[in-house]
Design a binder for these strands. Structure first.
Lengths: 246, 246
DNA sequence: TAGATTGTTAATCGATTAACAATC
DNA sequence: TAGATTGTTAATCGATTAACAATC
């Protein structure tokens, strides 16, 4: 017997969880699917459906206990224990990630940052010494690191990923347009800021440009016709309706 | 008559376009949907389908002329003219974005960076002076800026977005978990690095955790059972099949 | 009880895929 | 021509939604 969880559900779960943390800090004790939905920009049915993949966490007629649901979402997301993480690339992206307080707060613990640039090695970034790449395997093995962040330029991404995987890392976060080849058991997520911006520039006065556009309106698909917060990952196909300029 | 373009298609189009640029630089003149598909990690049918929303760009039996198709994808994505962009937030995220060469190469021109931190104002970031926030409306109007990047901490995101929108910006890129409220005509994309990492930590030894998981395998949905490069945006629901640890 | 909200079902909607005719 | 590859169709697959019984 199998349950399939949409990837979109997992992405939303992260948002729910982050919101619940916020509510908990504000001492709010109970929340309804409607309130969560409003905050995260989805329907309440969606919230309940997403949660229902994992269990029954609510109280009918009342809603969800914030503290409990937060704990549940953390367990579902695998965040009840800290995750050691390494970063390769001590450029501005690497530096940004080092300073990222959110990561720490969600249980990610940076245990190594690596770079082969001689001018960077031995310098410190947020209390962590920048090490040469050949020190990577040892750190990964000693600390049992499973998550690696690849923050290097596009032409080095595959190479760095290969090294990480060889050292025992099974979960990669990469940046930029490069799609890498990895063995079956390795999972990759990719964040592409340029692609994000390009989705914003898509369509603007393109009537009559191409065959398909000659006599038709072009719409970006999605049920919300207007604005949309698009969360991480390639999930949820919310889109923005366009008027194809016509 | 209407054509609906899936948001996932636009996200992929950006990848195709970035790959085509790369091919063009390597003086490759012709490429097949199969080759593009392989590079981007989708099926060749998907590539052809995506392109077919906009026209017929290929030559049967041969493939696509790299140079031509690159131009077409740029036009589709609205990248044939430069886009002035502003950033609010001169922290490490803002700094990272300033140094991002990829943005420049794809036609995004940074025309202003703003911050209200007195210790940052008047300093320079990549040749651009950091200005106080109240200088924002003027820059936006003078330069006709439509795209704003919100690189501030979570509690300031809504406020900054409001100011941008009031000044005439209609396309926002935000970071972090915050989902903001915007008027109908404003489009928002969001990049959430933490959510990206949390999708990697999802599921690990969670058998027997909850009702639903007691007797079932939990799978992250998606057709590719193994690894997956997950591109930007909430699009494409490629996922990773899990063995629910069981 | 009356009001509220969950969890779940069935229907709908949308995106992907496989297959193939068209044709270079 | 034979081989290759496109563009498109119909079928499949998957995700979202609306509605409502259950129940606090």
């Amino acid at each position: 017997m199998r349950t399939r969880v949409p990837g979109a559900t997992v992405a939303r779960l992260s948002k729910y969880s982050q919101y619940l943390k916020c509510l908990n800090e504000k001492k709010v004790t109970v929340v309804s699917s409607r309130e969560i939905a409003r905050e995260v920009g989805v329907s309440s049915a969606q919230v309940r459906k997403d949660l229902s993949y994992f269990g029954e966490f609510g109280i009918k007629g009342l809603g969800y206990k914030v503290k409990d649901l937060q704990q549940y979402t953390l367990r579902i997301l695998g965040l009840t224990r800290p995750w050691p993480v390494i970063i390769v690339g001590a450029g501005s992206l690497g530096a940004m990630l080092c300073t990222c307080q959110d990561l720490r707060e969600r249980g990610f613990r940076l245990v190594g940052i690596f770079d082969n640039d001689i001018t960077k090695i031995k310098k410190h970034l947020f209390g962590l010494e920048i090490l040469p790449l050949d020190g990577l395997p040892e750190v990964v093995r000693q600390q049992g690191v499973k998550i690696g962040i690849v923050a290097v330029s596009v032409n080095a991404v595959q190479e760095v990923a290969d090294l990480m995987i060889k050292s025992g890392i099974t979960k990669l976060l990469t940046f930029g347009p490069k799609v890498i080849q990895v063995p079956p058991k390795v999972e990759v997520r990719n964040i592409d800021i340029v692609a994000g911006l390009e989705m914003l520039t898509f369509y603007t006065g393109r009537k009559n440009l191409y065959k398909k556009l000659r006599n038709e309106q072009v719409l970006l698909n999605g049920r919300d016709a207007r604005s949309k917060n698009v969360c991480y990952g390639q999930f949820s196909r919310e889109g923005v309706k366009l008027r194809g300029q016509g």
